[in-house]
Simulated assay, not measured.
Amino acid sequence: MTINQHVTEFAGLPVVAFDPADPLAAYQTGIAWRLEAPEYDTSAEDFAAQIMQFVETVDPASVQALVIGAWGSAYDTPPPVTLLADLASRLTGLRALFLGEMTFEECEISWIRQDDITPLLAAYPALEVLRVRGATEGLTLSPVRHTALRELAIEAGGLPARVVRAVADCDLPALEHLELWLGDPQYGGDATVDDLVPILAGTRLPALTYLGLRDAMIADEVAAAVAGAPVVARLHTLDLSLGVLSDAGAAALLAGQSLTHLRRLDLHHHYVSEESAARLARELSGVEVDLSDREEADSDGDRYVAVAE
């Protein structure tokens, strides 16, 4: 699987690309604005000028959601985090931000250079949704307390353990949706289940109802840890999709605490046998269990996450 399409909806709003030549741009509301560099080699300065043109064209206070696409050569240029943070006094209505929404043709996910996203959380205390794509290079986060954030997602071909630990150390009392793409060690995904312990305990996440530990080479180990995790009792959705879950992980899920309270167990893109899949469906008959996209190990027995490079 590759990321080959842009999102058309974000934070419940339709995504519309900002066109400075559109005479109606200044009057559009109720949308998620998409900002992206016009050319692959657009400089950081030119992209910053485009952002400034945007806030001069539209009413910045009316902007509810922003989708930041390619900012030029994203593999060697960090995103405009500082500028976005500096604009917080003007973007007073911003509630949702997607940083790095690119297809593989624009920049492979593991090549996207990110930055310290802590200033965004500090500058926007009312932000409710933060989604970041690309984490191997540059992404950092300092543990923070943020009382408004409801959804945090980090999409990566390999999520560094330091970022997982930082997320785990954050105090996010309103967070309902946490989604971490753990990825492949070959692309920087060196987190272990030990790094997930505070998240699985759920102490700082009292409102959590969706937990996604996705795209994981350590999917079986994650399943075993989740099977006894206190946070699971509060969830309506457990998402272990896009990874390399096998019969061992499926057995661990069934041997642990009851999962019958879940509305949805998402395991799509997996390596579970037909027999184990049938047992999951049978024993969790009241749960929507997604076992689509079954994969086969290659001739060497190797399994692959859905999104890596």
Rank of each mutant, 00 (worst) to 15 (best):
260 T>Q: 13
222 V>Q: 09
237 T>W: 11
217 M>V: 15
245 L>R: 04
288 E>W: 04
210 Y>P: 04
239 D>G: 11
256 G>S: 06
235 L>G: 14
271 Y>V: 00
264 R>K: 13
280 L>S: 03
278 A>G: 15
207 A>Y: 06
276 S>H: 15
271 Y>Q: 00
211 L>E: 03
221 E>R: 13
212 G>P: 02
237 T>F: 06
201 A>I: 06
287 V>N: 00
240 L>R: 03
267 L>N: 02
233 A>W: 12
281 A>E: 15
204 R>Q: 13
204 R>C: 08
248 A>F: 08
300 D>N: 14
277 A>Y: 02
265 L>Q: 05
280 L>R: 01
287 V>S: 00
254 L>K: 04
280 L>T: 01
258 S>C: 05
283 E>P: 00
244 V>E: 12
290 D>F: 03
258 S>E: 10
264 R>L: 11
233 A>H: 14
239 D>W: 07
249 G>N: 11
253 L>A: 04
223 A>E: 02
219 A>P: 14
196 L>Q: 08
294 R>K: 11
245 L>N: 07
236 H>R: 14
292 S>G: 15
303 R>L: 10
284 L>R: 00
250 A>N: 12
236 H>V: 12
297 A>T: 03
262 L>V: 08
266 D>C: 07
195 D>N: 13
205 L>A: 06
238 L>I: 05
302 D>G: 12
279 R>V: 14
209 T>G: 05
224 A>I: 10
243 G>D: 09
262 L>K: 11
208 L>Y: 06
259 L>K: 04
269 H>V: 01
254 L>H: 04
201 A>P: 00
273 S>A: 04
221 E>W: 04
283 E>S: 09
215 D>Q: 13
259 L>H: 05
274 E>G: 09
297 A>I: 10
295 E>Y: 09
300 D>K: 15
254 L>P: 06
208 L>Q: 03
206 P>K: 10
264 R>I: 05
253 L>T: 02
200 L>H: 03
228 G>N: 12
291 L>G: 07
221 E>L: 10
202 G>M: 08
288 E>N: 12
223 A>T: 03
297 A>V: 10
229 A>Y: 07
204 R>E: 12
201 A>M: 12
301 G>R: 07
256 G>F: 08
301 G>I: 05
202 G>D: 05
256 G>R: 03
252 A>Q: 01
233 A>T: 15
235 L>M: 14
242 L>I: 10
262 L>N: 13
300 D>H: 14
212 G>T: 11
247 D>P: 06
298 D>C: 11
254 L>F: 06
284 L>T: 00
197 V>S: 09
293 D>C: 11
219 A>R: 11
222 V>M: 05
246 S>Y: 01
251 A>P: 02
236 H>I: 11
240 L>F: 08
199 I>N: 05
221 E>F: 09
268 H>Y: 13
237 T>M: 05
234 R>S: 15
231 V>P: 08
199 I>R: 08
288 E>R: 07
213 L>P: 02
275 E>W: 07
217 M>H: 12
281 A>S: 13
221 E>N: 13
234 R>E: 12
290 D>T: 01
249 G>T: 09
253 L>E: 01
196 L>D: 04
268 H>W: 12
271 Y>F: 07
287 V>L: 01
252 A>R: 01
